[in-house]
Nucleic acid binder design. Sequence first.
DNA 1: ACCGCCGGGTGCC
DNA 2: ACCGCCGGGTGCC
Length: 965
Amino acid sequence: MFPPRWRFSWDRCTEVDLFTDRHTLSQAISAAAAEEPDADGSVLYGQLKGTVVGLKYYTGVVNKGEMVGLVREPQNPYDSNAVKVTNIYGSQVGHIKRQLAAAMAYVMDKTLAKVEGVVYSGTNNAFSMPVILSFWGKEENKNAVTEAMVRRGFKLDTGGIKLAGANQTSSNSPGAWTMASKKGLTTRLTANELKNAFDNLFEGLMESKDGEKEAAESVSTPLLLHQKQALSWMCARENKCALPPFWEKRGELYYNSLTCFSAKEIPERVRGGILADDMGLGKTLTTIALILTNFQKGKPLPVEKCEEQSSPRKASTKSQMVSKPEGSSSAGDGAGGSDTAAGSLCADSAKMEVICVDTPDVVEKADKSEKSAGKGKMKATKRKPSKEAPVLLEDLDFAAALCGSSSDTAFKKKKTTVKAGPSQSVESSIIESADDLSARTTLIICPLSVLSNWLDQFEQHVQADVKLNVYLYYGSERNRSKKFLSSQDVVITTYNVLSADFGNKSPLHGISWLRVVLDEGHVVRNPNAQMSKAVLDLKAQRRWILSGTPIQNSVKDLWMLVAFLRLKPFDAREWWNRVIQRPATQGEREGLQNLQTLVKCITLRRTKSSEVNGRPLVCLPEKTVCVEQVELSQPEREEYELARNEGRNTISRYMAEGTVLRNYADVLAVLMRLRQHCCHPDLLAKTSSDLGVAATPAELREHLIEKLRLVLASGSDEECSVCLDSIHLPVITHCAHVFCRPCIAKVISTEEETARCPLCRTEIKTNELVEFPQEEIEEENSANSVKWRTSSKVQALMGNLLRLRCEDSSIKCLIVSQFTRFLNVLETPLREHGFSFVRLDGTLSQKKRAQVIQEFQSSGADSPTIMLLSLKAGGVGLNLTAASHVFLMDPAWNPATEEQCIDRCHRLGQKRNVFVTKFIVKDSVEENMVKIQRKKQDLVEKAFGSTNTNRKTSRIDDIKALMEL
DNA sequence: ACCGCCGGGTGCC
DNA sequence: ACCGCCGGGTGCC
């Protein structure tokens, strides 16, 4: 008779269905994940052999070599020091033995160390097993932890634990021995190699993916070759049952080769991935094609054709004119739902049926009879709305209109278009039972700025006679009925609406979606943000992330994407940190390799310069960039020199005193004035140039506001030193440093009594933060419009514009400046010479912005030929392909900003060659700025190893160069 | 449960 | 016999 031999733990594989409670479990994991401390800078204090006990009481299973989680359990009734041991899915395996648990509890509770466990040898009985514990944390806590452990009789071994009888070379990398076979290959990567590796993480992911696939008939736009490849790849990712990376089947079990976890159940397949093509390659079109082409079981989405009522009925005006319901107010994303939205549109390139649901009211339908022309052109004509059309598609009020009005007939009609599958609402169903065929709807979440683009593209790329139910879930009037939403083909909403709904009996979270698509997915980055939680909590069979820039700063950002895709087990932050992030960022080849494998498995990325079969994906027209030197007139030159000498004196003094940082705002002010001189004297306006000592609080405040104004207006894209992002809700401290209000408020509240400025360590208080008064922005405009004068740069521009108009009056131009006041100045000569122009700057509401763009993009005879564009207006993604000439009036600090701006017209859809003219004033600060730009492009050191302070110091070096000091 | 620990039974070899 | 030793009962925290 066999002794009651212990069985290998995976034999004991529990019958408990890990997946029954999967939803809440994954929720719990994501919740815990968000709190996981950042592992990047941590060091290994040492390791310790410990014991896991109580195995027989729990169902969680572990394998030889598997990583386990260690979780404090202060509420344990038997021992408040309890530390429980879990496997990758969070099922409990046992406890750490009492005395050791007491010692660990101390360091864990004080967050002196993060302890990680690996069960290197499995167990040889049913009651307990050994575990290797690795203690990680900040360098400065190392001694405290070591001592605390010694005091309780546990000595941390720093030499790596010798495993009796094991042939692994022990290494100081935890879990390195899981890769038992790889010996001696533990040289670390240098910071530089690492950076290159990260930068290239998303490159070369093209390969020969899965061939090509034609889109369903209902897609009207023919796909380009690379788009067919993408479609094929996406369909394959949705339909094939391939295991996620690092999982393999071993006999009856599924085994993860990185964590050594195994389970009877197949790991949740990742049906989806990251489409990370460069902007302009047609991610939107490809996604639309996916929606129409790959419904359940690989079949196309069943759609109905519109009946032949589309007999052209005097279709002079196009589609979507909808009367605007009163009460729908203006811009702003509708976190609270300020304006707009909802409706269902029968999207088709020709006809747009506007259907509304709640309020019965008027609906206008219009047909377009022209045959579908090429997209760009068609769009243009379509966008030539007659004057009667009160509201345009891009106008978000359109959405409000959609929902604000409805006719019963329209509603019914729409209903008929719903190919009513078993469209029973399925809220109660367990997510992702792969065969849940009742899910119909694709949910698209995007930033507000591209919402209209999606609507546009659906309209543009779907066959005219196909009825596709697209519902815009936006605005206070949105239809929150789950039944309604889950009967749509597509529901589009914004990140803000999603997170506003979240936790507020959100219908979006109660629906089992067929597919969820995160557009510009990189915007979801901070795992603590409400938005991230809202996104992670969506239930869907298939998940996609679209992004042109998948890694913005670091590997860290990738976690959100991986978690969203539910890539087991990395959707729990701990496993991501242990297995991927920390090893990779600390230069372990294995870690990096795993990261690369992972990314490769789930990502498709092509760049503008990628090639298929030796041919570029897209052929953009040529782009020519030239610099036009501008000579200042004699009086301008004299004024400039005066200002320059004055500024040099000021800055030299700061340099000598070593107070450049403290007076940073003043320094910027000097540079600012010089740059303004180069453009036009009127830009200088009123400047309280005497920056003397402020006597009264009111004066101080005035000064600070002035400084803030200068910093903000300087176009230097100042970043907040706390979050290192662009400044959001700027405030200035009494020591004249600018931060985001939330950031500095956090600093003050954490440091309490003794809060100091992060930059100069002066004491700061919340009530001393000065904000920029809103009214001031307006009041400026009136000041300088008295009598207009020209400047050398204005002359140079006008010369070009007049010449171009002579050559070809259809040419459209972008005129770009960082100074909106300069744009004001330019309006006068443009009017004088009879140019028809529009203006796009940051002050425009979303609604106006869309109007302006549409007007400009239109090809009508009376459409504007010039757009005055403020450099930072609008985000990427702005489509201004109507323009073929770009005039950059003044150099930017950051050449990437200029590139981005140029790319707004030099992108897919551009039919003409593009000419870019940069105006640079000879012998001026502008020339030096250009030199610095070049230097910056050469230096690729920015991201790694450079701290906030040395970014600032490099800025000081820049200043020296600019002032020729 | 092939250990450790506890506590009762026991007591030269 | 206020010890040691033996062997049965027992067992996470």
